[in-house]
């Protein structure tokens, strides 16, 4: 996946004519953008960000302002939060004002001695995506990038069913992690393990997000893994307990989070619908070996 992405970056750089505007001032020539900002304004990378948002966040109603403008506008900036010693990670933001979306991104580069793990991303990855009220004018500190809507649209349309799925060792690790989470959930809920092979559907991987959704069919449960560690790094799956959340379709889905006083334990129907579409309709079916779950559920700690 890394090589394909790197090739795409090089090839696309040759074909896309850069149209970058720095701050409020339009530049007539290509400005000397280097380093982190060069990566954040790179068209191939922004296209991957757009593809991810298109799959997971953008709705039909979001498209109208872009169609009218005939261009997709990106506001990009580098962030420099105070980091721990020896942490060389880089951070940034990408806003798509026409879609009212703001994303934070990170290029991780640090070590975790306690886990004996090196965390080094192969590209900037999305860490947060939020709906925002976009201001009319670009805020200070951002750089504007524009891409022709028709080109991006055609590419997204052509590749809408194209998906990269884990295979080989990575699939093996992911399969084991999903199986462990299911077994843990069954034990925690004092249930008997279901008999026979379990079926889960995995969503496609994105080169700009370290997250995976899986739908466990007979358990009617969505499982979400997210990490700072790249998914093809074995360390991610050795420590999968760190960021895994389960959402039972029968218990954890609401129309609006207002129904549940903003609890973090729920998904909206819209979010769940999107995850189900990406897992079931364009995802990959994976079978898990029958579960062996401890007869004794875990004791409640007091």
């Amino acid at each position: 996946m890394k090589n394909r992405f790197a090739e795409a970056v090089v090839l696309a750089s040759l074909f896309f004519a850069p149209r970058i505007y720095a701050g409020e001032e339009r530049m007539s020539t290509v400005p000397p953008i280097e380093g982190t900002l060069a990566e954040l304004t790179s068209h191939p990378w922004l296209e991957e960000v757009t593809r991810h948002l298109y799959r997971w966040y953008i709705d039909e109603r979001d498209i109208a302002p872009v169609v009218r403008a005939n261009e997709i506008i990106y506001w990009v900036k580098e962030n420099k939060p105070k980091l721990d010693e020896d942490d060389r990670s880089r951070f940034g933001e990408v806003w798509l004002p026409q879609f009212s979306l703001a994303a934070k991104v990170k290029h991780a580069d640090y070590t975790i001695p306690e886990m004996n793990a090196k965390v080094k991303s192969d590209a900037f990855k999305l860490t947060e995506v939020e709906r925002i009220e976009a201001p009319a004018a670009m805020p200070a500190g951002f750089t504007e990038v524009r891409m022709p809507y028709a080109e991006v649209r055609d590419d997204l349309f052509k590749t809408r069913n194209q998906a990269v799925f884990p295979d080989g060792e990575m699939l093996g690790r992911m399969r084991a992690a999903v199986r462990a989470e299911i077994a843990s959930d069954i034990a925690a809920n004092h249930q008997r393990p279901p008999e026979g092979t379990q079926v889960v559907f995995l969503c496609a991987l994105s080169p700009v997000a370290n997250e995976v959704w899986a739908f466990w069919e007979s358990g009617r449960t969505l499982i979400h893994f997210a990490s700072d560690i790249d998914l093809d790094n074995p360390a991610m799956w050795e420590h999968e307990k760190l960021e895994c959340k389960l959402y039972h379709l029968d218990k954890k889905i609401v129309v609006s989070l207002e129904d549940v006083n903003g609890s973090n334990g729920f998904l909206t129907r819209n979010e769940a619908g999107r995850a189900l579409f990406n897992c079931l309709a364009v995802g990959k079916r994976v079978e898990l070996e029958p579960l062996k779950v401890n007869a004794e559920p875990p004791a409640v700690k007091r």
């Binding site: 980091l83 640090y110 886990m115």
Partner: peptide, 12 residues
């Protein structure tokens, strides 16, 4: 904590 998606720093 380190390794998790929202990790920035100890101070954060």
């Amino acid at each position: 904590f380190p390794g998790e998606r929202a990790w920035v720093s100890e101070e954060d």
